[in-house]
Simulated assay, not measured.
Amino acid sequence: MADVDLLLKPREAAAALGISYATIKQWILAGTLRTTKTPGGHHRIPQSALTPLLKSSSTKSRVDSRERFRAVSGRNQLVGKVVEVKFSGLLAKVVLSIGDQQITSIITADAAREMQLRKGQTAGALMKATEVMIVRV
Rank of each mutant, 00 (worst) to 15 (best):
T130L: 14
K86E: 14
H43Y: 15
A30C: 09
R113L: 10
Q116C: 15
G80Y: 04
R136P: 14
G31W: 04
T35M: 07
I24K: 00
A111V: 07
L17K: 01
L17F: 03
H43M: 08
D3P: 08
S97W: 11
V85N: 01
V132R: 05
Q121E: 15
G74P: 13
Q26N: 15
E84R: 11
L50K: 01
S65Y: 12
T108P: 06
S56G: 07
A109S: 09
Q77C: 06
R62V: 15
D64C: 10
E114T: 10
L91N: 07
S57K: 08
V85C: 00
A14E: 00
G80T: 08
V83A: 01
I103L: 12
A123K: 06
T23K: 09
R75L: 11
K25L: 09
E114Q: 14
S97C: 14
S57L: 08
L8T: 00
K9T: 03
L6E: 14
W27K: 07
V135W: 03
L50F: 01
P52A: 05
G124P: 04
E67N: 13
A123F: 05
D100N: 05
L50P: 00
A111W: 06
A2S: 07
D3R: 11
M115L: 06
T108I: 06
G120F: 09
D5I: 06
K9C: 05
Q121F: 15
K37E: 09
K37T: 09
P46I: 01
T51F: 10
V72F: 12
Q121W: 06
P46C: 00
G120A: 11
S97I: 07
I19C: 03
I134A: 04
I98D: 02
L8K: 00
G89E: 08
L17G: 00
G124A: 05
E131D: 08
T51R: 10
L53S: 00
I134T: 07
H42V: 06
P39T: 15
S65C: 10
I134G: 04
G40S: 06
A14F: 00
R113K: 08
